[in-house]
Nucleic acid binder design. Structure first.
Lengths: 230, 230
DNA sequence: GTCGTTCGATTGTTATACGATCCTTCAAAA
DNA sequence: TTTTGAAGGATCGTATAACAATCGAACGAC
């Protein structure tokens, strides 16, 4: 009997520090919109509410600020990040660079395509059930699995951060949940191109796809700028 | 008189926190090899040596662990990251994806090429002066400027992290400083292709360039594995 | 030689304290 | 009226101390 088989179980055993658990709680709250962008997170208030000390909370804050979900102003504290139109543009610039770059390398029957297909199916089922929440989740999973085709831990982590920021962006949309709906059909089309080993064609289509989404979001930002309180 | 012109000076005024300054000191020490990979950084020892409290030091540790220069093991402390051959492979996978992806977009006279040209010149001057330290710095600057052509803050930061990790990798080379020397001529060639707006050709050449460097490093890792104490 | 126990060292976390900085308020001066 | 300056409170940045939890090594029992 070998002990190597247990190596994969190690991650399950690894306990998480208090700071990481606190960060997870705050991350969820921020993404779901409980703490809207611009909110100040006072150390005292949050710390006592969650029952952790300031030191531990600060460590959690630092974790989240590295994920770009919080920004830190010296002697002023932590704030939920407020993204600008320029941020959206940069986020989509990175997405086009990375996602399209990965797709272009798919010129053979890639085993990871099964996970991509699963994400597409999840999205289609969510559409059938009119579960917009699940649809958004499936769409994000689709793009995460696309990048995972590269088999690069660092690229995965990069994408994970980019998508976390994007969830912050989606909050500016009037109806964030339905934002993803029209892209569902295009997801399947890209999947089918990949299954035909036409990575280059898939990349070209994804490029247009991402430009469309970017324009849609930038326009939403422009409208918000025009009439914030209207 | 407008105040907008002063906006760029703001970064200079912004004081840095103690944790950031401590992180800067440790970062330098790690990169220069004073703390070799695998070294454990005890909170007490480092903290008292630098004259900062444990809390502040821990914030600095967290900064560096996010840069992947340190790894954190629960209840065991911080260690200088020890990279594996797989890390090298992944680092170069990301480099090919990002650097080549950026180059491929250069199909017009890009103003940022001046900075790239400056990095090439720096390298050539360093070679003439046989200043291997400066040569390595110039080479890293070359690649950083290549990526900067994308004009994307997030891509710049990603690349900055990748290059920091690479400096850790170079320590496995018997003669890290001269490692970069043969790539200098290829830097100029890529620059000239970019100046001819042949981004695609430059990308193709850089792809081979990076594969060569990767193989060289992976081989050095294999030799180190074979006879660590020889 | 393997297993269980003990013990010292180090980290994880909390609590407290004080100086530094920011924001607000309000009054005085131009 | 607008601007300037000062006082005050609130919050953060940092240091210090303390205790619990955990790890690693040494020791001893079987």
């Amino acid at each position: 009997m070998t002990t190597e088989a247990l190596a994969t179980d190690r991650a399950l055993l690894a306990r998480t520090s208090t700071a990481e658990r606190v960060a997870a709680v705050l991350r969820t709250r921020i993404i779901e919109g409980y703490f809207p962008p611009g909110t100040r997170l006072a150390e005292d208030a949050i710390g006592s509410a969650l029952g952790v000390s300031r030191n531990t909370l600060r460590e959690a804050f630092r974790l989240l600020s590295h994920e770009r979900l919080l920004t830190h102003e010296l002697n002023r504290g932590m704030f939920v990040r407020t993204l600008t139109a320029e941020d959206v543009i940069d986020l989509y610039r990175v997405r086009r660079l990375v996602e399209c770059g990965v797709l272009r390398t798919v010129t053979f029957p890639h085993p990871g395509l099964e996970a991509v297909a699963a994400a597409v199916r999840d999205g289609e089922e969510a559409l059938g059930a009119r579960d917009w929440q699940a649809l958004g989740t499936a769409n994000i999973k689709f793009h995460k699995e696309l990048v995972a085709l590269a088999g690069s831990p660092r690229t995965d982590e990069l994408m994970s951060g980019i998508l976390a920021e994007l969830r912050l962006v989606f909050h500016v949309m009037a109806d964030p949940q339905r934002f993803h709906e029209p892209y569902l059909a295009r997801n399947r089309q890209i999947l089918e191109q990949l299954q035909r080993c036409d990575g280059s064609g898939a990349a070209d289509e994804l490029d247009v796809y991402l430009r469309d989404a970017e324009n849609q979001l930038v326009q939403a930002f422009a409208e918000r700028e025009a009439g914030p309180g209207a």
